[in-house]
Design a protein around this nucleic acid. Structure first.
Length: 272
DNA sequence: AGTCGCCTGGTA
DNA sequence: TACCAGGCGACT
């Protein structure tokens, strides 16, 4: 599932591949995923060129030369692929932007949970972005992190994945950061001791940076903008490793459900 | 805070 | 053939 490192990798790819290109046309076979509607998006961006591409949390923002903004959420199985015009159709291809320079920007999505949304104006963008917590690799310092922890008695893993509190962390990096910091996923956030908070703060930064370094985790569906896999899955600490040996002790990684989500942890390293 | 619904491919 | 995963918003 695309989380901060995966979306960031795609953003960096797209900057090289599509910035400066003009939108010639757009099509979809899955109208529900294009908001507010294909007709409105078409009218707004056909003829404009891509000016810059930003990321906030797991959201990609495409800014156009006419000041319109498209935001994209990949959810679980979304991909953004840049292909040559007319190249063989990609699996689960649902929205296509036809670009100048004989390129196509394709949004593919097996589950169809992802979406592409045209914003009304700058205000709407600010409104949406203001709903996200700080970026863990940019505007989060340790004091702010401690405040966030102290604000709730929810399980620490659920908190890490709450985009309103901290942005960009999903199941993979939450599981890995908690093992690296040796903290049980169910531990209440406000009950973390200073040293644990410190370890977790460092661990979050470390796993996210590793994710970016390895160009994301292609455990299941994730591919970068050129359709290549990342390799962070070869460096998973906890995620997806149920039954395998812990990387730091002789314990065996276990799997449980927490907040409805599969949660991987080492019962020996991560005590409650 | 817990549950449902959105989807579809993979698995039991 | 039924069931399940899973980000996130809506609902309870």
């Amino acid at each position: 599932m695309p989380e901060l490192p995966e979306v960031e990798t795609i953003r960096r790819d797209l900057i090289k591949l599509v910035v400066g290109k003009k939108v010639l046309d757009i099509k979809t076979d899955s109208p529900k995923q294009v908001k507010p509607s294909l007709a409105i998006v078409k009218k707004a961006i056909v003829g404009a060129s891509i000016k810059k591409i930003e990321r906030r949390a797991k959201l990609l923002q495409i800014f156009f030369s006419n000041n319109r903004v498209l935001i994209i959420h990949l959810k679980l199985t979304g991909r953004l692929l840049v292909r040559e015009a007319g190249a063989v159709e990609d699996k689960w291809q649902h929205v296509v932007l036809f670009l100048s320079g004989n390129k196509e920007l394709r949004f593919t999505d097996l589950r169809k949970f992802g979406w592409v949304k045209l914003l009304k104006d700058q205000n709407e963008l600010e409104e949406i972005l203001s709903g996200f917590g700080p970026e863990p690799l940019n505007d989060l310092d340790f004091n702010k992190f401690k405040e966030i922890l102290a604000s709730t008695a929810r399980a620490i893993k659920v908190l890490l994945m709450d985009q309103k509190k901290i942005s960009g962390i999903g199941n993979i990096y939450a599981c890995d950061a908690l093992l690296l910091a040796k903290i049980h996923p169910e531990k209440k956030a406000k009950e973390l001791k200073e040293v644990e908070a410190k370890r977790l703060f460092t661990a979050v930064e470390k796993v996210l940076k590793a994710g970016i370094k390895y160009r994301g985790a292609s455990d299941q569906y994730y591919l970068d903008a050129l359709g290549h896999k990342g390799s962070y899955q070869d460096h998973f600490l906890a995620y997806g490793r149920a039954g395998e040996k812990c990387f730091k002790c002789d314990g065996i990684i276990d799997k449980m459900k927490l907040g409805g989500r599969g949660t991987y942890f080492c019962p020996k390293c991560q005590k409650k």
